[in-house]
């Protein structure tokens, strides 16, 4: 009683690839943005103060705006600035903007869990900047950063479903297209939900595993 033809399967498959692209692209941008934002927030130079405030305001505000609204803002901003970019690029950019804010919060929180004495000791030992981060702060912050960061990445894989609203044909949009073509809705949406589950569940397990691993140490 399966109503899918191989064209439908191909559409679903392409859409799933698009969802993965959105998640990966957004994730990479988000991580890069989060590192820059966190660096700004942690910098203690006097001249950096305005940038620091800007970073904090950005992180605090963007996490309080629904993803779909941010998506529309970026989409229409790009249009008004005359940028000729595809909807997919806009979607990846917006996911990156939001992911950067959330991941910055996680990263910043993680770095703050490292006891001050550790950083001071590293300073006293005259370790250069990279060595402080590589051997002292990094390894200790890791346990507080990696599991929630992966947990968050899982969350926003599901947010990519909203990219359908600016015309990206990703998994949830493929479901709507197939359903509108007259395929049985129940089967279509079960399939879509299953495919999302197949992407998301392994990552959830990974995050849980890492959490346990780190708790053991």
């Amino acid at each position: 009683m399966i109503a899918f033809s191989h064209y439908d399967i191909a559409l679903l498959f392409q859409a799933m690839v698009r969802t993965v692209e959105l998640s990966l692209g957004g994730g990479v941008l988000g991580i890069a943005g989060a590192i820059i934002l966190t660096a700004l927030r942690l910098s203690d130079m006097r001249g950096m103060l305005p940038l620091r405030i800007l970073a904090v305001v950005y992180v605090q505000t963007i996490r309080r705006i629904p993803f779909i609204v941010t998506l529309y803002i970026v989409f229409f901003c790009a249009g008004m600035m005359g940028l000729d970019v595809s909807a997919t690029v806009v979607a990846i950019g917006s996911i990156g903007l939001i992911a950067a804010a959330y991941l910055c919060e996680i990263l910043h929180g993680g770095v703050k869990t490292v006891p001050v004495e550790q950083v001071e000791a590293a300073l006293v030992l005259n370790l250069p900047l990279w060595a402080r981060w590589r051997y002292v702060i990094g390894p200790q912050a890791m346990s507080a950063v990696v599991p929630p960061a992966i947990g968050y990445l899982v969350l926003f894989i599901k947010d990519t479903a909203l990219a359908s609203q600016i015309g990206v044909v990703e998994l949830s949009q493929a479901g709507v297209i197939l359903s509108n073509r007259g395929l049985p809705s129940a089967q279509v949406f079960c399939m879509v939900l299953l495919l999302y589950f197949a992407i998301s569940y392994p990552l959830t397990c990974l995050s849980r595993l890492l959490e346990k691993r780190i708790a053991v140490h």
């Binding site: 899982v154 894989i157 599901k158 947010d159 990519t160 479903a161 909203l162 359908s164 998994l171 949830s172 479901g175 709507v176 359903s179 809705s185 129940a186 949406f189 079960c190 879509v192 939900l193 999302y196 589950f197 998301s200 569940y201 959830t204």
Partner: peptide, 14 residues
């Protein structure tokens, strides 16, 4: 592990 949007779609159509 599945998006809320797809869940609402499922409810909405089914």
């Amino acid at each position: 592990n599945t998006p809320q949007l797809s869940q609402i779609f499922a409810v909405f159509y089914c």
